[in-house]
């Protein structure tokens, strides 16, 4: 039952990696998000946001549920980190098992797993975020959400396909992989009409600019840890527990 083993391995790998990243996020990243939320402006001028206005003067009578600040919010964040890690582990472990079954390349080990982790970081962070929609703190101006989500998905899919072509295709076709990965960047990521923050107070802008560069740095460090650990553990899981039958 390869599917069952893929699922169980992904859950275990996802819990370990997501928990580790959740703790990193709690100590290094979430504090920046909380600090940026202090500068969020009211909902008439900015996109709706759940956390800036939990205490007073909220006009909507049907405010959607959101976790309370403190332990509840931290718990949901770590839970969401774990869920995302399980999703990435499902992709990684099932494709590694397929690689072991079909590819004319060395079998997966924890070491090659770490390399898959680096490739995944390129797919899910470097290409869509560093080369496109930069990591941003709450209150940053951005293009329409649906357009950004669409571009993000396209960029991830084409970067993954591009890396697969580079690695697996015969030499004369490898250039095609570069072309595939370049397409979303030639199209360009959806950008807002004017860059900046919803809050136009100069003090807020200066603070948010600093918070943004800290946030960019720490999410990059966090993502590197996350993906290398995820890849290594996925490689170990595939080596030990997952085998597709031919």
């Amino acid at each position: 039952m390869a599917f069952r083993n893929i699922l169980l391995s992904a859950i275990i790998v996802g819990i370990c990696t997501g928990l580790l990243y959740g703790l990193f996020q709690h100590f290094q990243i979430s504090t920046i998000i909380y600090a940026a939320e202090v500068y969020e402006v009211s909902e008439e001028t900015a996109a709706p946001h759940p956390h800036s206005d939990t205490t007073t003067h909220h006009e909507h009578s049907t405010e959607a549920w959101g976790p309370e600040d403190g332990a509840e919010r931290i718990g949901y964040t770590i839970g969401a980190d774990i869920a995302v890690a399980i999703a990435f582990a499902l992709f990684m472990i099932s494709l590694m098992a397929l690689h072991n079954l079909k590819a004319n390349k060395p079998q997966i080990t924890p070491m090659t797993g770490a390399a898959w982790g680096v490739a995944s970081m390129i797919v899910f962070f470097v290409a869509p975020a560093m080369f496109g929609l930069h990591p941003e703190v709450p209150g940053t101006e951005a293009a329409t959400l649906e357009n950004r989500q669409g571009w993000w998905s396209l960029c991830v899919a084409l970067t993954a396909a591009g890396i697969a072509v580079l690695y697996y295709a015969p030499a004369k076709l490898k250039l095609g992989g570069v072309v595939l990965a370049a397409v979303p960047h030639l199209m360009g990521a959806p950008m807002p009409e004017h860059h900046g923050f919803a809050n136009t107070d100069p003090v807020a802008i200066e603070a948010l600019t600093q918070l943004t560069s800290q946030f960019y740095l720490l999410t990059t460090v966090g993502m590197a840890i996350f993906f290398v650990v995820l890849g290594t553990l996925s490689g170990l899981a595939v080596q030990r527990f997952v085998k597709l039958d031919n």
Binding site: A80, F91, S94
Partner: peptide
């Protein structure tokens, strides 16, 4: 995996967004 990623990282419902808000930011999801 794709369904799970969509619900946690991309689903537009307020409740899903609010629960996973900080995680969405930290993975640089839109």
């Amino acid at each position: 995996g794709a369904a799970l990623l969509f619900v946690v990282g991309f689903a537009p419902m307020d409740v899903a967004h609010n629960a996973a808000h900080d995680a969405r930011h930290s993975f640089a999801f839109p």
